[in-house]
Design a protein around this nucleic acid. Structure first.
Length: 878
RNA sequence: GGGUGUGUAGCUCAGGUGGUUAGAGCGCUACGUUGACAUCGUAGAGGUCACAAGUUCGAGUCUUGUCAUACCCACCA
C-alpha cells in the first residue's frame, strides 16, 4: 500500500542503506560484459558537501546507474583527498584556539593530531554523498594518504626522479609568507587593487647633479636592486648605459645596463632590477649575470640586507619614502591600478622568493598529454574545453611540487653527509644506496618538504585501482571510461592526471572528460561563504528530497553553462515526484498491479498501444541523450512523458475504461498501466533513484531490484498507434479552446460535427468518440461529410469552422446583444483615441510616453474589436 | 594585451548537421474543487531571437563587424 502523501524522508535513507548493505553498488566481476568506470573527484576529507558536489555527483550517479542497468560491470570508485594546505590550516586554527602552534607540538605530534582530527570529522562528506544517493562502491573507498596510495606516490616519484623529470633547484617561486611555503602558479590568484606608483631618482656615480629617474610600486625592494635597465633604443636615456648609479640610503653602486625589458614607453623608461623579488627581473638578472640580493625573511619581513630588518614591507615602504623625500630624491607619487597576487588559501600577498624547491619537468610530461588529446584518445565534452587544455599545456611551466608543510606525502629523498641526494622508495633502500656510495655506513637526513596535494591526486585514477600492483580491478577498469569534473579544476587535476598517466601507465587515465560549470545562486552570483549566499544541499534535500535536487541538477545541466540555483524550480521537480506518486496511487486504487502478465505487443486498445509507443519513444530519447551526455534533454524527455503524456492524457483517457463494464478492456488497460509505470520507473531511476525504487518495491513482488533492472533497447515504436491518439488529442484540445473562447459554461454539453471528415477521421471518431466526449465534455461527436486529410482537419480546428451547434446550450440572443454592446463601447473608445491622436496639439505637446501609451491603448482596442467581430460572425449561423 | 563563452517570453533558461506556426519551468490573466493529485486541472496573454551588414530558395542557427556582459590566461616600472 502506498502512503497517501509523497514523503521522501520516509524512505530515502532506508532505501540507500538497503542498497549499500546488499552490495548493490559492487560490480559483478564474473559477468561477461563491458566495463564502465568512473573515479570520483576526491573531495577534501574534512570537507562538507556543497552545491558543486551535488551537481558533480548527481551527474556521475546518473551515468553510473544508467550503465549499471545496461548490464555493464560498473565501478564508481570513491575516496577522499588529504588536501594538504586546507587541512593543515584547519587543524592549526583549532590548535590556535588553545593557544598552541604546530611548532609547540613538533612535526610528529602535529601529524598525529591531524590524523586524529581526520578520523573524527573525516566521514562527513561521504555520509552526505550517500544522502544524495551516490551509488559508489564504498567498500573500495580510498584516501590519498593511505598506505597503498602513499606507496604509489613514492614509486612514481622515484621513477620521475631517476628519469631526471623531478629536480631540485634554487629558483624564484611564489612564496606564501603566512603558511611559510612555496605554492604553485595555480594557487595564486591575482586581485585588482588601487596602489601607488612611486617616482624617484638614483644619483649617477661621479656625475654630480645627474640622476636616473625610475618608477616602482614597491620602493622597499630597492635595497635588493642590482642594476637599472634602460633600452638601447631609448634615445633620451641610452647615454647612461654603462655608467653606474647609486642606491640611496645604503649608497650601493649598481650598473646601468641595456636590456629590452625596459620599455621606453612605460614608466620613466628606466627600470630598477631586483632579480630576487620579481620574475621579470630574475630573467634580466640571468641575462646579465647580476647578483641576487634577497631583502626578505620567510615571513615577509625585511631582512638584514636592508636598513630596516624586522619591519613589514608596508612599514619599510613608509620609512623608505620618508628617507628619499628627506634626501630630495622623490619625484612624485601617483595612484596606480595594479594587480596583486594573493594566496588562494591563505589570502595573504604572495612574494616572489628565492628558495630551494623541487620541480616536475612539466613541459616534457605535457608532450604526451597533448598528443593523446590531439589524436582523440581522450575527448573533452564539450569539445571546446580542448582549447583551454591545449593553451595551458603548451605554455606549461615547471611545476613546483615541494611544500614546506607537515601534512602531506613526505618526499622520498634522503641527504648524505655531503648533501648527496638519495631518492628511493624506502629508507632502507636509500640507506643501502648511500652506504654503497660512501663505502661505509653514514647517517642520512630525510627531506622535510612534503608534496603538493595535486601530486597524489594526479595518480588517483590508477592508484585507487591498486597500482603499482597488477590487480584485477586495474586490469578491468583502467583506463576509466569517464571523468566528470568542474572546469575550474582542469589545470589542477585533469592536466596532471593526464601527464602522470601518460608517463607511468602509457595510457590515458579516462577516455572522456565531461566538464560542467559552477552552481551559482538565484541571481547568477558565485556562491561564497563571505557573500553569505551559500545554500546547503543537505537543507534542500531535507526540504524537498534528494530526488528533487538531483532532478533539478540534471534538468539544468546543459553543456558549457553555469547553473543558477532556483528554489522555485526545485519545488517544481518535487511536485513532479508528487505527481508521479499520485499517478501510482491511481493505479493502485484501480487494481492495476495485481496481474503483471502483459505483453505490450499484444495490446488491442488504441490508447494502450499509444502509451506503449510513447513510452518506448521516451525511452529512446532518454537513451540517446544520456549516450551523448545531454543531461537536460534526457531529464526533460522523462518529465514530458510522465506529466504530459502519461498523467495528462493517458490516465484521463482510460478512466472511462476503468470505470466502465467491459472486463476484457479493463484487464488489458490495468496491465498496460502497470507496464507503463514500470517503464517510467526504469527510465527515471538514474535521475530519481529513491522514489522510483519505493514505487517499484510497493507495486509488485519482483525478482529483480530496480537498481539492477535491465534498460530497454532497440524497441519497435508503433508510429501508427501514436498518430491516431495524437489526432484525438488535437481534436479535444481544439474543442476545449473553442469552449473557452465562446465562454461556454462548464456544464454545457454541446454536440460537434466534424466537417468534411475522411475515412480515417470517421474511424477515429467512432473509436474514440467516447473519450472525446468525456474529455471535451460533449454530448456527441459526429462526422460531417466529404474528404479531408488529417492536416486539413488541423486547419479546420484552427479556423474554428468546427461545427458546434449550441442551441439550447447558449442563449444566442443574449450573447449577440452582449457582444454588440461591447462592440459599440469599443468603437466609441476608438473614436476617442483617433480624435486625440489626430489632434496635432496633443501629439506635439504631450510627453512622448503619454502619446505612446495612447497608441498602445488604441492598438489594444483594435485587437479586441476584431475578436468581438469574429465572435459575432461565428454565432451569426445559429 | 591574448583567449573563451554568453545576449531568445516579465524571470531563469532549452533550441546537434540552416527547413512548417521559435519551446520549457516559474510568474501573469480567466475559469474550474469533474471519483490520483490544489504539491492540481483547463484555456489564454506574452518574442523585431542584442544590433548592423552578408551568404542562401530559406538564418535564432552560418560569416563579418558593432555593442553589452561573464570568465580564463598573461603583463603592468
Amino acid at each position: 500500500m502506498l502512503e497517501k502523501n509523497y514523503n521522501p524522508k520516509d524512505f530515502e535513507e532506508k532505501i540507500y542503506a538497503d542498497w549499500e548493505n546488499s552490495g548493490d553498488f559492487k560490480p559483478d566481476m564474473r559477468a561477461n560484459s563491458d566495463a564502465f568506470s568512473i573515479v570520483i573527484p576526491p573531495p577534501n576529507v574534512t570537507g562538507y558537501l556543497h552545491m558543486g558536489h551535488a551537481l558533480n555527483n548527481t551527474l556521475q550517479d546518473i551515468l553510473v546507474r544508467y550503465n549499471r542497468m545496461l548490464g555493464k560491470k560498473v565501478l564508481w570508485q570513491p575516496g577522499t583527498d588529504h588536501a594538504g594546505i586546507a587541512t593543515q590550516m584547519v587543524v592549526e586554527r583549532n590548535l590556535a584556539k588553545e593557544g598552541i602552534s604546530r611548532h609547540d607540538l613538533g612535526r610528529e605530534k602535529f601529524i598525529e593530531t591531524v590524523w586524529k582530527w581526520k578520523e573524527h570529522s573525516g566521514g562527513t562528506i561521504t555520509k552526505q554523498l550517500r544522502r544524495l544517493g551516490a551509488s559508489c562502491d564504498w567498500s573500495r573507498e580510498r584516501f590519498t594518504m593511505d598506505e597503498g596510495l602513499s606507496r604509489a606516490v613514492r614509486k612514481i616519484f622515484v621513477h620521475l626522479y631517476k628519469d631526471g623529470l623531478i629536480y631540485k633547484a634554487k629558483k624564484l617561486v611564489n612564496w606564501d609568507p603566512k603558511l611559510g611555503t612555496a605554492v604553485s602558479d595555480l594557487e595564486v590568484v591575482q586581485k585588482e587593487t588601487v596602489g601607488k606608483m612611486y617616482y624617484y631618482k638614483y644619483p649617477i656615480e661621479g656625475e654630480k647633479g645627474e640622476y636616473i629617474h625610475i618608477a616602482t610600486t614597491r620602493p622597499e625592494t630597492m635595497f635588493g636592486d642590482t642594476a637599472v635597465a634602460v633600452s638601447k633604443d631609448n634615445e633620451k636615456l641610452k647615454h647612461l648605459i654603462g655608467k653606474n648609479c647609486i642606491i640611496p640610503i645604503i649608497d650601493k653602486v649598481i650598473p646601468i645596463i641595456a636590456d629590452e625589458h625596459a620599455d621606453p614607453e612605460k614608466g620613466t623608461g628606466a627600470v630598477k632590477i631586483t632579480p630576487a623579488h620579481d620574475f621579470n627581473d630574475f630573467e634580466v638578472g640571468k641575462r646579465h649575470n647580476l647578483p641576487l640580493v634577497n631583502v626578505l625573511n620567510a615571513d615577509a619581513t625585511m631582512n638584514e640586507n636592508t636598513p630596516y630588518p624586522g619591519l613589514t614591507t608596508q612599514e619599510a615602504r613608509v620609512k623608505t619614502i620618508e628617507k628619499l623625500t628627506e634626501l630630495g630624491l622623490m619625484d612624485k607619487i601617483e595612484d596606480h591600478p595594479m594587480v596583486i597576487p594573493y594566496g588562494d588559501r591563505s589570502g595573504v600577498v604572495i612574494e616572489p622568493y628565492m628558495t630551494d624547491q623541487w620541480f616536475v619537468d612539466a613541459p616534457v610530461l605535457a608532450k604526451e598529454a597533448i598528443r593523446v588529446v590531439e589524436e582523440g584518445d581522450m575527448q573533452f565534452v564539450p569539445k571546446s574545453y580542448e582549447k583551454t587544455y591545449f593553451e595551458w599545456m603548451r605554455n606549461i611551466q615547471p611545476w613546483c611540487i615541494s611544500r614546506q608543510l607537515w601534512w602531506g606525502h613526505q618526499m622520498p629523498i634522503w641527504y648524505g653527509p655531503d648533501d648527496t641526494i638519495f631518492c628511493e622508495e624506502t629508507e632502507a633502500e636509500a640507506q643501502a644506496a648511500a652506504d654503497k656510495h660512501y663505502g661505509k655506513h653514514v647517517e642520512l637526513r630525510r627531506e622535510t618538504d612534503v608534496l603538493d596535494t595535486w601530486f597524489s591526486s594526479g595518480l588517483w585514477a590508477f592508484s585507487t585501482l591498486g597500482w603499482p600492483d597488477k590487480t584485477e580491478y586495474l586490469e578491468t577498469f583502467y583506463p576509466t571510461s569517464l571523468l566528470i569534473t568542474a572546469f575550474d579544476i582542469i589545470f589542477f587535476w585533469v592536466a596532471r592526471m593526464m601527464m602522470m598517466s601518460m608517463y607511468m601507465m602509457k595510457r590515458v587515465p579516462f577516455k572522456k572528460c565531461y566538464i560542467h560549470g559552477l552552481v551559482r545562486d538565484e541571481k547568477g552570483q558565485k556562491m561564497s561563504k563571505s557573500k553569505g549566499n551559500t545554500i546547503d544541499p543537505l537543507d534542500t534535500i531535507e526540504k524537498y528530497g534528494a530526488d528533487a535536487l538531483r532532478f533539478f541538477m540534471a534538468a539544468m545541466e546543459t553543456q558549457g553553462r553555469d547553473i543558477n540555483l532556483s528554489e522555485a524550480r526545485i519545488t517544481g521537480y518535487r511536485n513532479f515526484a508528487t505527481k508521479l506518486w499520485n499517478a501510482a496511487r491511481f493505479g493502485e486504487m484501480n487494481d492495476c498491479f495485481t496481474n503483471r502478465e502483459f505483453n505490450p505487443d499484444n495490446a488491442k486498445l488504441a490508447v494502450n498501444q499509444w502509451i506503449i509507443a510513447k513510452a518506448r519513444e521516451a525511452t529512446k530519447e532518454v537513451t540517446d541523450n544520456l549516450e551523448s551526455y545531454r543531461f537536460s534533454d534526457a531529464a526533460n524527455a522523462v518529465y514530458q512523458f510522465v506529466w504530459g503524456s502519461f498523467c495528462d492524457w493517458y490516465i484521463e483517457m482510460i478512466k472511462p475504461i476503468l470505470y466502465g463494464d467491459n472486463d476484457a478492456d479493463k484487464a488489458e488497460t490495468r496491465a498496460a498501466f502497470a507496464w507503463v509505470l514500470d517503464r517510467i520507473l526504469i527510465i527515471l531511476h538514474p535521475f530519481m533513484p529513491f522514489i522510483t525504487t519505493e514505487l517499484w518495491n510497493n507495486t509488485a513482488k519482483r525478482d529483480t531490484k530496480l537498481i539492477h533492472a535491465s534498460w530497454p533497447k532497440d524497441e519497435n515504436i508503433d508510429t501508427k498507434a501514436m498518430e491516431r491518439i495524437d489526432w484525438t488529442i488535437d481534436l479535444i484540445s481544439a474543442v476545449r479552446s473553442l469552449r473557452a473562447e465562446m465562454n461556454l459554461p462548464a456544464g454545457a454539453k454541446p454536440i460537434i460535427y466534424l466537417k468534411d471528415a475522411n475515412t480515417q477521421s470517421i474511424d477515429n471518431l467512432q473509436s474514440f468518440g467516447k473519450i472525446i466526449c468525456s474529455l471535451a465534455r460533449l454530448e456527441k461527436a459526429e462526422a460531417f461529410h466529404g474528404e479531408v486529410t488529417p492536416d486539413m482537419v488541423q486547419n479546420v480546428f484552427k479556423e474554428s469552422t468546427l461545427l458546434m451547434p449550441l442551441k439550447g446550450v447558449v442563449d444566442f440572443a443574449a450573447e449577440k446583444e452582449r457582444l454588440q454592446k461591447e462592440l459599440a463601447g469599443l468603437e466609441k473608445r476608438l473614436a476617442g483615441y483617433a480624435n486625440k491622436l489626430n489632434n496635432p496639439g496633443f501629439v506635439e505637446r504631450a510627453p512622448a510616453a503619454v502619446v505612446e501609451e495612447e497608441k498602445r491603448r488604441q492598438a489594444e482596442a483594435l485587437e479586441s474589436k476584431s475578436k468581438v467581430e469574429a465572435a459575432l460572425a461565428r454565432i451569426a449561423n445559429f
